[in-house]
Computed example of a mutant assay.
Amino acid sequence: MKKYNLAFRFRIYPNKEQSNIINATFGCTRLVYNKFLAQRKELYESQKKSVTYNTQAKELPSLKNELLFLKEVDSIALQQSLKNLDTAYKNFFQKRADFPKFKSKKSSRKSYNTVSTNGNIRIEGNSIKLPKLGLVKIKLHRAIPQNYIIKSATISREPNGAFYVSVLTEFVADIVPVPSDNNIVGLDFSMKELFVSSENQRADYPRFFRKLEAKLAKAGRELSRKVKFSSNWNKAKLKVAKIHQSIKNSRKDFLHKLSRELVTKYNAIIIEDLNMKGMSGALNFGKSVSDNGWGMFALMLQYKAMFCGKQVIKVDKWFPSSKTCSICGNIKTELALSERVYRCEECNSEIDRDLNASINIREAGRSLLAY
């Protein structure tokens, strides 16, 4: 038996008083983060000394006595803000991230994290109990199993004004690996269709951003004509945010359903380990790459497969999947992006370029399977 973590994200509908407390908590956690980040920077620049999390945590009570409004919000959220700062420093020194930056009040998405202690976070009917907020109305689109232990909650506000809570749970399970039994599929990334599988399945991605691009551009032009921070500017800004949120929600819904379908159908899924950021810059396909959300899709496949005892294998991004003939194994030296049909000079075969690549990806990943 092994412990696993799984997060559940729900829309919440706080009343006016609860919304004010949430917004105040955003501000207080930002203040604590920025104040102690400034302290760390100043101490290092003046004395070349470092400050530990424990040292700063001991200073938090005196700061709360100095700034009494900090006592009006969740104390655990303030402590978590300090822990986030400590994590940011560790990530920087271990070369996993850039140097920590000060948090801006103008940031479009705001959030804070709080930890579950003595049942202070729990689901009660159609509401969720949260520290300092009491019972908040929640949209429970899926149930949290009773044997799952709530560990923490992250409350966030999207640019369109909608509030969400992400509930992190812990559970114990014995996930039995499912043998592949040749029930394997290869997926070749496609800019237009998201992927083409080795069984010639095409995702037919709806391209949500492209569908609303004209509407988004019009809303953006309307926003640019408004006086900044005026009432009409705020209304126009909200309109733009709602369009972005609609695109985001539609994309996530489509990818969740598609990844679940694939994980249910196959015992092993082989994909390429692609650098999407580099690809979008090098090929000038930034909008198209961001629109189909391949990185998010790959992540969904991985964690859903893990919980089902199945495998998602990534083959090297430099593997010549498109240039290799899936029938005879001949490798072309040159293959233009415009050539959508693969023609092999050795065996005279013709096959759809993406289908050919997906078959090669499947066979390359077959040897990497763990069981």
Score class of each variant (00 low, 15 high):
Asn5Cys: 06
Ile12Pro: 05
Phe26Leu: 10
Cys28Ala: 13
Tyr33Val: 08
Gln39Trp: 01
Leu43Ile: 04
Thr55His: 15
Lys58Gln: 14
Leu60Ser: 11
Glu66Tyr: 11
Arg96His: 14
Pro100Glu: 00
Phe102Trp: 05
Lys110Glu: 03
Tyr112Phe: 15
Thr114Ile: 05
Ile123Thr: 13
Val136Leu: 09
Val136Gln: 00
Asn147Trp: 08
Ile150Ala: 02
Ala153Cys: 04
Tyr164His: 14
Phe171Ile: 12
Phe171Gln: 12
Val185Ile: 15
Gln201Ser: 04
Ala203Phe: 10
Tyr205Ala: 08
Pro206Ile: 00
Phe208Val: 05
Lys211Gly: 01
Leu216Ala: 02
Leu216Val: 12
Gly220Ile: 02
Gly220Arg: 04
Gly220Val: 00
Ser224Tyr: 00
Ala236Glu: 07
Ala241Gln: 10
His244Glu: 09
Ser250Pro: 02
Arg251Asn: 06
Asp253Pro: 13
Leu255Lys: 09
Thr264His: 10
Ser280Trp: 14
Gly281Ser: 11
Ser290His: 04
Leu299Thr: 14
Met300Thr: 02
Phe307Val: 08
Lys314Ser: 15
Lys317Pro: 14
Trp318Phe: 15
Ser322Pro: 11
Cys325Lys: 04
Cys344Ile: 11
Glu345Arg: 09
Ser349Phe: 02
Glu350Ala: 10
Asn356Ile: 05
Glu363Leu: 12
